[in-house]
Design a protein around this nucleic acid. Structure first.
Ligand SMILES: [Zn+2]
Ligand SMILES: [Zn+2]
Ligand SMILES: [Zn+2]
Ligand SMILES: [Zn+2]
Lengths: 158, 158
DNA sequence: GGAGATTAGGTTATAATATTGCAATTCTAC
DNA sequence: GTAGAATTGCAATATTATAACCTAATCTCC
Protein backbone atom coordinates (compact mmCIF):
# COMPACT_ATOMS: atom_id res chain seq x y z
CA UNK A 1 0.00 0.00 0.00
CA UNK A 2 3.14 2.07 -0.26
CA UNK A 3 2.05 4.93 1.92
CA UNK A 4 -0.98 6.13 3.83
CA UNK A 5 -2.15 9.60 2.95
CA UNK A 6 -4.42 9.77 5.99
CA UNK A 7 -1.56 9.48 8.45
CA UNK A 8 0.18 12.68 9.49
CA UNK A 9 3.48 12.97 7.70
CA UNK A 10 6.06 15.49 6.61
CA UNK A 11 4.86 16.16 3.12
CA UNK A 12 8.13 17.72 2.02
CA UNK A 13 9.53 14.22 2.18
CA UNK A 14 6.84 13.11 -0.27
CA UNK A 15 7.80 15.83 -2.72
CA UNK A 16 11.52 15.44 -2.33
CA UNK A 17 11.55 11.71 -2.68
CA UNK A 18 9.22 11.93 -5.67
CA UNK A 19 11.70 14.22 -7.38
CA UNK A 20 14.63 12.04 -6.37
CA UNK A 21 12.97 8.93 -7.75
CA UNK A 22 12.09 10.80 -10.93
CA UNK A 23 15.66 11.89 -11.36
CA UNK A 24 16.92 8.34 -10.89
CA UNK A 25 14.32 6.89 -13.24
CA UNK A 26 15.11 9.42 -15.95
CA UNK A 27 18.81 8.73 -15.63
CA UNK A 28 18.18 5.02 -15.92
CA UNK A 29 15.92 5.46 -18.96
CA UNK A 30 17.99 8.08 -20.71
CA UNK A 31 15.15 10.58 -20.43
CA UNK A 32 15.59 14.24 -19.61
CA UNK A 33 13.93 15.73 -16.55
CA UNK A 34 13.92 19.28 -17.88
CA UNK A 35 13.05 22.24 -15.64
CA UNK A 36 9.45 22.48 -16.75
CA UNK A 37 8.97 18.73 -16.38
CA UNK A 38 10.45 18.71 -12.90
CA UNK A 39 8.38 21.71 -11.87
CA UNK A 40 5.19 20.10 -13.15
CA UNK A 41 6.04 16.99 -11.17
CA UNK A 42 6.58 19.07 -8.04
CA UNK A 43 3.32 20.91 -8.56
CA UNK A 44 1.46 17.65 -9.04
CA UNK A 45 2.97 16.53 -5.75
CA UNK A 46 2.07 19.81 -4.01
CA UNK A 47 -0.53 17.82 -2.10
CA UNK A 48 -2.29 14.50 -2.35
CA UNK A 49 -5.13 15.82 -4.45
CA UNK A 50 -5.32 15.10 -8.17
CA UNK A 51 -4.68 18.34 -10.05
CA UNK A 52 -6.09 19.47 -13.39
CA UNK A 53 -3.79 20.49 -16.23
CA UNK A 54 -5.35 23.94 -16.31
CA UNK A 55 -4.72 24.40 -12.59
CA UNK A 56 -1.02 24.10 -13.30
CA UNK A 57 -0.91 26.74 -16.01
CA UNK A 58 -1.17 29.86 -13.82
CA UNK A 59 1.34 28.42 -11.33
CA UNK A 60 3.85 27.84 -14.09
CA UNK A 61 3.15 31.31 -15.45
CA UNK A 62 3.88 32.88 -12.05
CA UNK A 63 7.29 31.30 -12.10
CA UNK A 64 8.17 32.52 -15.54
CA UNK A 65 7.62 29.26 -17.35
CA UNK A 66 5.82 29.28 -20.60
CA UNK A 67 2.21 28.70 -19.84
CA UNK A 68 0.23 27.49 -22.75
CA UNK A 69 -1.76 24.27 -22.61
CA UNK A 70 0.64 22.30 -24.81
CA UNK A 71 3.47 22.99 -22.40
CA UNK A 72 1.76 21.41 -19.45
CA UNK A 73 0.19 18.60 -21.45
CA UNK A 74 3.57 17.69 -22.89
CA UNK A 75 5.13 17.63 -19.47
CA UNK A 76 2.28 15.53 -18.12
CA UNK A 77 2.49 13.13 -21.05
CA UNK A 78 6.18 12.72 -20.39
CA UNK A 79 5.57 11.99 -16.73
CA UNK A 80 2.74 9.60 -17.58
CA UNK A 81 4.94 7.72 -20.05
CA UNK A 82 7.59 7.23 -17.39
CA UNK A 83 4.99 6.17 -14.86
CA UNK A 84 5.78 9.10 -12.58
CA UNK A 85 2.19 10.27 -12.47
CA UNK A 86 -1.20 8.67 -12.99
CA UNK A 87 -4.23 10.12 -14.63
CA UNK A 88 -7.52 10.02 -12.73
CA UNK A 89 -9.90 9.78 -15.64
CA UNK A 90 -13.06 10.42 -13.72
CA UNK A 91 -11.67 13.80 -12.64
CA UNK A 92 -9.61 14.72 -15.68
CA UNK A 93 -6.77 15.17 -13.26
CA UNK A 94 -3.29 13.95 -12.48
CA UNK A 95 -1.57 12.67 -9.36
CA UNK A 96 1.91 11.52 -8.45
CA UNK A 97 2.67 7.82 -8.41
CA UNK A 98 3.84 6.48 -5.07
CA UNK A 99 5.95 3.70 -6.56
CA UNK A 100 7.19 4.61 -10.01
CA UNK A 101 9.51 2.23 -11.76
CA UNK A 102 7.46 -0.80 -10.82
CA UNK A 103 4.94 -1.58 -13.56
CA UNK A 104 1.49 -1.52 -12.03
CA UNK A 105 -2.09 -0.57 -12.83
CA UNK A 106 -3.46 2.79 -11.79
CA UNK A 107 -5.58 2.12 -8.71
CA UNK A 108 -6.87 4.88 -6.45
CA UNK A 109 -9.37 5.83 -3.83
CA UNK A 110 -10.52 9.44 -4.13
CA UNK A 111 -12.49 11.29 -1.45
CA UNK A 112 -15.46 13.13 -2.88
CA UNK A 113 -15.34 15.72 -0.10
CA UNK A 114 -11.70 16.73 0.29
CA UNK A 115 -10.46 15.42 -3.03
CA UNK A 116 -7.47 13.61 -1.59
CA UNK A 117 -6.44 10.44 -3.34
CA UNK A 118 -4.75 7.33 -2.00
CA UNK A 119 -2.99 4.92 -4.32
CA UNK A 120 -3.98 1.34 -3.62
CA UNK A 121 -2.36 -2.00 -3.98
CA UNK A 122 -3.39 -3.28 -7.38
CA UNK A 123 -2.99 -7.00 -7.00
CA UNK A 124 -6.74 -7.58 -7.13
CA UNK A 125 -7.00 -5.59 -10.32
CA UNK A 126 -4.44 -7.87 -11.89
CA UNK A 127 -6.70 -10.76 -10.94
CA UNK A 128 -9.59 -9.15 -12.80
CA UNK A 129 -7.37 -8.78 -15.82
CA UNK A 130 -6.15 -12.37 -15.73
CA UNK A 131 -9.70 -13.60 -15.27
CA UNK A 132 -10.91 -11.59 -18.25
CA UNK A 133 -8.03 -12.92 -20.32
CA UNK A 134 -8.83 -16.49 -19.35
CA UNK A 135 -12.58 -16.30 -19.80
CA UNK A 136 -12.89 -14.00 -22.79
CA UNK A 137 -9.62 -14.37 -24.63
CA UNK A 138 -8.84 -10.68 -24.46
CA UNK A 139 -5.32 -9.35 -23.93
CA UNK A 140 -5.12 -6.64 -21.28
CA UNK A 141 -2.52 -3.94 -21.76
CA UNK A 142 -3.64 -1.20 -19.40
CA UNK A 143 -5.71 -1.16 -16.26
CA UNK A 144 -7.22 1.48 -14.07
CA UNK A 145 -9.48 1.40 -11.06
CA UNK A 146 -10.98 4.41 -9.35
CA UNK A 147 -12.92 4.19 -6.15
CA UNK A 148 -14.86 7.17 -4.83
CA UNK A 149 -16.27 7.83 -1.42
CA UNK A 150 -15.39 9.42 1.89
CA UNK A 151 -11.96 9.33 3.50
CA UNK A 152 -11.67 8.74 7.25
CA UNK A 153 -11.33 12.44 8.04
CA UNK A 154 -14.34 13.46 6.00
CA UNK A 155 -16.40 10.70 7.58
CA UNK A 156 -15.53 12.08 11.00
CA UNK A 157 -16.35 15.61 9.88
CA UNK A 158 -19.82 14.49 8.83
CA UNK B 1 -20.37 -12.22 -16.90
CA UNK B 2 -23.87 -11.56 -18.14
CA UNK B 3 -23.13 -11.76 -21.83
CA UNK B 4 -20.21 -12.22 -24.19
CA UNK B 5 -19.84 -9.54 -26.79
CA UNK B 6 -17.38 -11.59 -28.79
CA UNK B 7 -19.88 -14.36 -29.51
CA UNK B 8 -22.09 -13.96 -32.54
CA UNK B 9 -25.55 -12.92 -31.48
CA UNK B 10 -28.68 -11.21 -32.71
CA UNK B 11 -28.00 -7.70 -31.58
CA UNK B 12 -31.61 -6.62 -31.94
CA UNK B 13 -32.26 -8.76 -28.91
CA UNK B 14 -29.67 -6.73 -27.00
CA UNK B 15 -31.39 -3.49 -27.91
CA UNK B 16 -34.91 -4.70 -27.34
CA UNK B 17 -34.20 -6.27 -24.00
CA UNK B 18 -32.28 -3.19 -22.90
CA UNK B 19 -35.32 -1.06 -23.64
CA UNK B 20 -37.64 -3.55 -21.98
CA UNK B 21 -35.53 -3.63 -18.84
CA UNK B 22 -35.36 0.15 -18.85
CA UNK B 23 -39.11 0.42 -19.11
CA UNK B 24 -39.58 -2.00 -16.23
CA UNK B 25 -37.00 -0.26 -14.07
CA UNK B 26 -38.53 3.16 -14.69
CA UNK B 27 -41.97 1.85 -13.86
CA UNK B 28 -40.65 0.35 -10.66
CA UNK B 29 -38.85 3.57 -9.69
CA UNK B 30 -41.56 5.98 -10.75
CA UNK B 31 -39.25 7.51 -13.34
CA UNK B 32 -40.29 8.60 -16.81
CA UNK B 33 -38.67 7.05 -19.84
CA UNK B 34 -39.52 9.95 -22.14
CA UNK B 35 -39.04 9.71 -25.92
CA UNK B 36 -35.67 11.41 -25.96
CA UNK B 37 -34.43 9.31 -23.05
CA UNK B 38 -35.53 6.09 -24.66
CA UNK B 39 -34.04 7.09 -27.99
CA UNK B 40 -30.72 7.95 -26.35
CA UNK B 41 -30.74 4.58 -24.66
CA UNK B 42 -31.39 2.86 -28.00
CA UNK B 43 -28.61 4.84 -29.66
CA UNK B 44 -26.19 3.95 -26.87
CA UNK B 45 -27.12 0.34 -27.47
CA UNK B 46 -26.73 0.64 -31.26
CA UNK B 47 -23.61 -1.46 -30.88
CA UNK B 48 -21.24 -2.58 -28.18
CA UNK B 49 -18.94 0.41 -28.52
CA UNK B 50 -19.00 3.22 -26.01
CA UNK B 51 -20.45 6.30 -27.66
CA UNK B 52 -19.64 9.95 -27.05
CA UNK B 53 -22.35 12.45 -26.15
CA UNK B 54 -21.55 14.50 -29.23
CA UNK B 55 -21.90 11.47 -31.48
CA UNK B 56 -25.51 11.24 -30.39
CA UNK B 57 -26.41 14.83 -31.16
CA UNK B 58 -26.58 14.59 -34.97
CA UNK B 59 -28.48 11.31 -34.78
CA UNK B 60 -31.08 12.87 -32.52
CA UNK B 61 -31.24 15.90 -34.80
CA UNK B 62 -31.96 13.69 -37.83
CA UNK B 63 -34.96 12.31 -36.05
CA UNK B 64 -36.40 15.68 -35.16
CA UNK B 65 -35.37 15.65 -31.53
CA UNK B 66 -33.93 18.74 -30.03
CA UNK B 67 -30.23 18.45 -30.40
CA UNK B 68 -28.32 20.68 -28.10
CA UNK B 69 -25.68 19.33 -25.72
CA UNK B 70 -27.83 19.74 -22.61
CA UNK B 71 -30.50 17.53 -24.12
CA UNK B 72 -28.23 14.56 -24.56
CA UNK B 73 -26.33 15.12 -21.33
CA UNK B 74 -29.57 15.28 -19.40
CA UNK B 75 -30.77 12.07 -20.95
CA UNK B 76 -27.44 10.41 -20.23
CA UNK B 77 -27.46 11.64 -16.65
CA UNK B 78 -30.93 10.22 -16.21
CA UNK B 79 -29.82 6.87 -17.58
CA UNK B 80 -26.68 6.92 -15.45
CA UNK B 81 -28.69 7.66 -12.32
CA UNK B 82 -30.91 4.69 -12.97
CA UNK B 83 -27.92 2.50 -13.73
CA UNK B 84 -29.06 1.88 -17.29
CA UNK B 85 -25.77 3.03 -18.77
CA UNK B 86 -22.21 3.31 -17.56
CA UNK B 87 -19.70 6.00 -18.30
CA UNK B 88 -16.29 4.96 -19.60
CA UNK B 89 -14.23 7.79 -18.16
CA UNK B 90 -11.07 7.08 -20.06
CA UNK B 91 -12.99 7.55 -23.32
CA UNK B 92 -15.50 10.20 -22.28
CA UNK B 93 -18.10 7.83 -23.58
CA UNK B 94 -21.17 5.90 -22.54
CA UNK B 95 -22.29 2.31 -22.88
CA UNK B 96 -25.35 0.33 -21.97
CA UNK B 97 -25.35 -1.69 -18.78
CA UNK B 98 -25.88 -5.41 -19.26
CA UNK B 99 -27.53 -5.94 -15.88
CA UNK B 100 -29.27 -2.79 -14.69
CA UNK B 101 -31.23 -2.93 -11.50
CA UNK B 102 -28.54 -4.86 -9.67
CA UNK B 103 -26.21 -2.47 -7.91
CA UNK B 104 -22.71 -3.10 -9.17
CA UNK B 105 -19.48 -1.29 -9.98
CA UNK B 106 -18.71 -0.22 -13.51
CA UNK B 107 -16.18 -2.73 -14.81
CA UNK B 108 -15.27 -3.02 -18.47
CA UNK B 109 -12.74 -4.29 -20.92
CA UNK B 110 -12.37 -2.03 -23.97
CA UNK B 111 -10.54 -3.00 -27.16
CA UNK B 112 -8.16 -0.30 -28.31
CA UNK B 113 -8.52 -1.41 -31.92
CA UNK B 114 -12.22 -1.93 -32.55
CA UNK B 115 -13.52 0.00 -29.57
CA UNK B 116 -15.93 -2.69 -28.44
CA UNK B 117 -16.47 -2.97 -24.73
CA UNK B 118 -17.35 -5.97 -22.60
CA UNK B 119 -18.82 -5.54 -19.16
CA UNK B 120 -17.06 -7.74 -16.63
CA UNK B 121 -18.02 -9.43 -13.43
CA UNK B 122 -17.12 -6.98 -10.70
CA UNK B 123 -16.71 -9.23 -7.70
CA UNK B 124 -12.95 -8.65 -7.55
CA UNK B 125 -13.48 -4.90 -7.62
CA UNK B 126 -15.70 -5.22 -4.60
CA UNK B 127 -12.84 -7.01 -2.89
CA UNK B 128 -10.54 -4.08 -3.60
CA UNK B 129 -13.12 -1.79 -2.11
CA UNK B 130 -13.61 -3.88 1.02
CA UNK B 131 -9.87 -4.17 1.45
CA UNK B 132 -9.42 -0.41 1.18
CA UNK B 133 -12.21 0.10 3.68
CA UNK B 134 -10.62 -2.32 6.12
CA UNK B 135 -7.06 -1.10 5.78
CA UNK B 136 -7.56 2.63 5.36
CA UNK B 137 -10.88 3.35 6.98
CA UNK B 138 -12.34 4.87 3.85
CA UNK B 139 -15.96 4.39 2.81
CA UNK B 140 -16.36 3.43 -0.83
CA UNK B 141 -19.48 4.66 -2.60
CA UNK B 142 -18.64 4.26 -6.25
CA UNK B 143 -16.28 2.02 -8.14
CA UNK B 144 -15.07 1.80 -11.68
CA UNK B 145 -12.51 -0.35 -13.42
CA UNK B 146 -11.46 0.00 -17.03
CA UNK B 147 -9.20 -2.46 -18.75
CA UNK B 148 -7.77 -1.71 -22.18
CA UNK B 149 -6.16 -4.01 -24.69
CA UNK B 150 -7.01 -6.20 -27.63
CA UNK B 151 -10.16 -8.24 -28.00
CA UNK B 152 -9.93 -11.79 -29.42
CA UNK B 153 -10.93 -10.70 -32.92
CA UNK B 154 -8.41 -7.88 -33.09
CA UNK B 155 -5.67 -10.19 -31.81
CA UNK B 156 -6.45 -12.57 -34.67
CA UNK B 157 -6.48 -9.74 -37.17
CA UNK B 158 -2.98 -8.72 -36.07
C1' DG C 1 34.05 21.02 -33.21
C1' DG C 2 30.66 20.68 -36.94
C1' DA C 3 26.77 18.42 -39.92
C1' DG C 4 22.78 16.13 -39.48
C1' DA C 5 19.39 13.88 -36.65
C1' DT C 6 16.54 13.96 -32.69
C1' DT C 7 14.18 15.91 -28.97
C1' DA C 8 12.07 19.63 -26.61
C1' DG C 9 9.69 23.92 -26.36
C1' DG C 10 7.03 28.34 -28.14
C1' DT C 11 2.94 30.04 -30.26
C1' DT C 12 -1.50 30.35 -32.25
C1' DA C 13 -5.49 28.46 -33.17
C1' DT C 14 -9.07 25.20 -32.70
C1' DA C 15 -11.33 20.79 -31.40
C1' DA C 16 -13.88 18.08 -28.15
C1' DT C 17 -16.37 17.64 -23.99
C1' DA C 18 -19.48 19.50 -20.51
C1' DT C 19 -22.16 22.92 -17.78
C1' DT C 20 -24.94 27.14 -16.40
C1' DG C 21 -28.97 29.89 -16.32
C1' DC C 22 -33.37 31.00 -17.49
C1' DA C 23 -37.81 30.67 -19.77
C1' DA C 24 -41.42 27.64 -21.45
C1' DT C 25 -43.83 23.55 -21.24
C1' DT C 26 -45.68 19.25 -19.47
C1' DC C 27 -46.89 16.25 -15.99
C1' DT C 28 -48.67 14.92 -11.21
C1' DA C 29 -51.15 15.24 -7.20
C1' DC C 30 -54.43 17.32 -4.71
C1' DG D 1 -58.42 23.23 -12.38
C1' DT D 2 -54.46 24.68 -9.96
C1' DA D 3 -49.98 24.56 -7.46
C1' DG D 4 -45.78 22.48 -7.45
C1' DA D 5 -42.45 19.47 -9.59
C1' DA D 6 -40.18 17.61 -13.40
C1' DT D 7 -38.83 18.05 -18.02
C1' DT D 8 -37.45 20.39 -22.13
C1' DG D 9 -35.82 24.36 -25.28
C1' DC D 10 -32.40 27.47 -26.01
C1' DA D 11 -28.26 30.51 -25.88
C1' DA D 12 -24.19 31.19 -24.05
C1' DT D 13 -20.07 29.78 -21.99
C1' DA D 14 -16.80 26.89 -19.32
C1' DT D 15 -13.46 23.24 -19.28
C1' DT D 16 -10.32 19.98 -21.15
C1' DA D 17 -7.26 18.59 -24.87
C1' DT D 18 -4.99 18.61 -29.40
C1' DA D 19 -3.24 20.15 -34.13
C1' DA D 20 -0.08 22.43 -36.81
C1' DC D 21 3.92 24.69 -37.59
C1' DC D 22 7.99 26.57 -36.43
C1' DT D 23 12.39 27.57 -33.53
C1' DA D 24 15.80 26.23 -30.28
C1' DA D 25 18.40 23.11 -27.72
C1' DT D 26 20.75 18.73 -27.35
C1' DC D 27 22.69 14.54 -28.90
C1' DT D 28 25.42 11.42 -32.16
C1' DC D 29 28.86 10.40 -34.91
C1' DC D 30 32.66 11.44 -37.38
ZN1 LIG E 1 2.48 13.66 1.59
ZN1 LIG F 1 1.42 4.25 -9.16
ZN1 LIG G 1 -25.34 -7.19 -28.90
ZN1 LIG H 1 -23.47 -2.66 -15.57
Amino acid sequence: MAQNVYKAHDHHVCIDSAVARARALCEQQGARLTPVRQRVLELVWANHKPVGAYDLLPKLAEEGFNSAPPTVYRALDFLLDLGLVHRISSLNAFIGCTHPGEAHPSCFFVCRECGEAQELDAEQVNKIARQAEAMLGVRVEQQMTELMGLCPRCQDAA
